[in-house]
Simulated scan of single mutants.
Amino acid sequence: MERKHLEYFLAVASHGSITSAANSLHVAQPSLSYAIGVLEREVGSPLFRRIGRGVVLTPVGEALLGPARQVLHDFMRVQTAAQRVAGLVSGRLDISAVTTLAVDPLASYVGAFRNQHPGVEFRILDAESAAATVDLVRRGQCEVGFTEHGIPTAGMRVLDLPRQEVLAVLPPSAAPPEDPLPLSTLAELDLVTTPHGTTTRSALDRALALTGTSPRIAVETTHRAAIIPLVIAGAGATLLPRRLAMEAAELGAVVVRLDPPLARRGVLVWPPGPLSPAAQAFVDLVSAWPPADDTDDSAHPA
């Protein structure tokens, strides 16, 4: 019984779908199905039962969940002991993060860490939602996670990240807007955003809720990377954290502050108990990072 087979088993159990699990693990679906089949032959019983396009655990699968998690935890303890001896010469750190926080500030943290410990590899996963980011850490699939402030984190350790100003980003063809732009004016614009339940959409909905209006969605897309190109092409306006907004400005977008000002804040989460040396060193680096809030205290949380 191989470690990766147990990792695959836990991923399928978590996602309820072989296809979704394969995507999250970045492996081919046939390879994942084959690994699950090997594990089922070793156990001597089916672990999943198909329902529609998904799967559910059989009683044997339910019984295997706890032991599988314990085995992976023990593997991590072995790696931890080895890494302590190696002094972070090598190793891997798995991180879950919502997309916007993966851009800023996670990218800066990872770059600084790699400069100090170039032998440590990173795997950064894009969870389906802010809550799913915490769930990946809670289930042991990632050691640390970057998620939105206010997401339930019971039983986890939490560190607040620097606040980020949220700016309005308009197409290059837009008429010169007021600066700062009243939220009431933003509510009258056609907007480009992601679907309900995503962090970008939630920030937009909460911002416009202050005006008592709903957003006028011109384009809704699951492709977060397409938002800035869509705005540049004239499809509509959007809200973005400052760093992403400034990247859009370099491409020609019109970027303005909001009135009242809006801000967002992420958090770093990790489980209680000892971490691997790489994870502990990473948490220490983030904890010691110089504060770089780009908002004042009057900014309303978005």
Rank of each mutant, 00 (worst) to 15 (best):
A209Q: 13
P176R: 09
L136E: 00
P182S: 08
L125E: 08
L181H: 11
V192Q: 03
L106N: 03
V98K: 07
F113G: 07
A97L: 03
A168T: 04
Y109V: 03
L106I: 05
R114E: 11
S129H: 09
V134M: 00
S96M: 05
S184I: 08
T133E: 12
T100R: 08
H149R: 08
G145T: 01
L136P: 00
L204Q: 10
L136C: 01
P195S: 02
S184F: 09
P180W: 00
S184C: 07
I124E: 06
T221P: 10
V166K: 06
A168Q: 13
G145F: 02
R163D: 06
H117L: 12
L136D: 00
A203I: 15
A203R: 12
L125Y: 11
L159R: 13
F113L: 07
V137P: 01
R206N: 09
A127C: 09
R114S: 14
T185E: 13
D160V: 04
V110F: 09
G111S: 06
D205W: 14
E178C: 14
E128H: 14
V98W: 02
P105N: 01
V110H: 02
D160F: 00
T194F: 01
E148Q: 15
V158K: 02
V110Y: 04
C142N: 06
M156H: 00
C142W: 03
A102W: 01
F146Y: 14
E128F: 11
A112H: 04
T194N: 01
E178F: 13
P195M: 06
E143S: 10
S173M: 02
L204C: 14
S214D: 12
R114G: 06
P162H: 11
T147N: 03
D126V: 15
V103Y: 05
S214M: 11
